[in-house]
């Protein structure tokens, strides 16, 4: 049985790290003055390995990098939009570039993926991070869809000595996966549901929304959760998708700008696949209109209704 509790990904993630810190002395948490209940436990128990650099993302990444050069496993933690963009060049030069020459276990952990911070407005929306991070060579990119998966990503992060960007939702979520699934995180994706001639491909919180939509579609569509962009077993993903005639991609990200939709379109093109793709996401504009996440999803056509309509639409 899977754990049916509702929990934030960040608490699941840091609870796993807390256990690891009790066993291993080589783990440091570096925060840009951003907290979490689970982080409070780490701060109180391991004050010497919890560093608050202040509101300074460049410093957070640089300090985490220096510690990793000395062999420590580090987690630079903050809001996803700022951890991925304010210090992008630090990530590029000191992590992506350096990882080509030497192992570096630096984990950039961003909370607030996509439209998590709905009411905080466009400065806190994070619609660009997947594009930016998957661009960088050697950087592993994780976008888990539930908290149990976030905890497994935390477990895996302890053993992979490559830099990583891990985007977490800020809202409590329930688990999509049954115990033991997905079987292999190295695949980067999992087919959560089979059926029909259309496959919905989603990432992060949108996999949750997509699953709710599919519950109303009477088995007319399958569902693939892309929880990592590197590692990603592209051959296996293609073999999964080639069973379908249509793919609908769903993301809280800009359309046709290098995110999930671009990854899928590129994959299908490389295989000369005759599979139609319909991309759902945010169409080249920021969302200044105030509203909760459901409202913003409705504005962008990525709510359950929008997903169901895309599934029902005939192939072009």
């Amino acid at each position: 049985m899977s754990d049916t509790r509702s929990m934030t990904m960040r608490d699941a993630f840091f609870d796993r790290l807390l256990e690891a810190m009790r066993q291993h002395e080589n783990i440091f948490i570096v925060t840009d003055d951003f907290g979490a209940p689970a982080l409070d436990k780490i701060r109180s128990e391991f004050g010497d390995r919890f560093i608050n650099v202040g509101i300074a993302e460049q410093s957070a990444v640089n300090v985490a990098t220096g510690l990793a050069i000395e062999g420590f496993t580090t987690y630079a933690f903050g809001i996803a939009g700022f951890m991925s963009m304010r210090c992008y060049e630090q990530i590029r030069t000191n992590l992506s570039m350096a990882a080509q020459v030497r192992p570096l276990n630096v984990n950039i952990v961003g909370v607030g993926a996509g439209l998590s911070y709905d009411l905080s407005g466009p400065s806190h929306h994070c619609l660009e991070d997947i594009t930016l991070m998957r661009l960088l060579p050697h950087l592993e990119v994780f976008s888990p869809s539930d908290w149990a998966l976030a905890a497994r990503v935390a477990e895996r992060s302890l053993h992979s000595h490559r830099p990583k960007y891990i985007r977490l939702d800020s809202k409590p979520v329930t688990n999509l996966y049954q115990d033991g699934a997905p079987a292999d995180l190295e695949d980067g994706f999992c087919e959560l549901a089979h059926g029909g001639d259309t496959c919905v491909v989603a990432t992060g919180f949108m996999t949750q929304v997509s699953q709710r939509a599919l519950a109303q579609s009477a088995g007319r569509a399958g569902l693939v959760d892309v929880f990592a962009f590197r590692p990603l077993n592209e051959d296996r993903l293609f073999r999964t998708l080639e069973k379908y005639r249509r793919v609908v991609t769903v993301e809280e990200g800009f359309l046709n700008r290098g995110g999930l939709d671009s990854m899928i379109v590129g994959l299908l093109a490389r295989h000369d696949a005759r599979i139609a793709v319909r991309a759902l996401g945010v169409n080249d504009h920021y969302l200044f209109e105030v509203g909760n996440r459901a409202h913003l999803h409705q504005l962008c056509g990525i709510d359950e209704r929008g997903i169901l309509q895309a599934i029902a639409a005939p192939a072009a």
Partner: peptide, 11 residues
Amino acid sequence: LGVACGIAVGL
């Protein structure tokens, strides 16, 4: 200098 700070903490 920022990376050096991390190295110094590590040392």
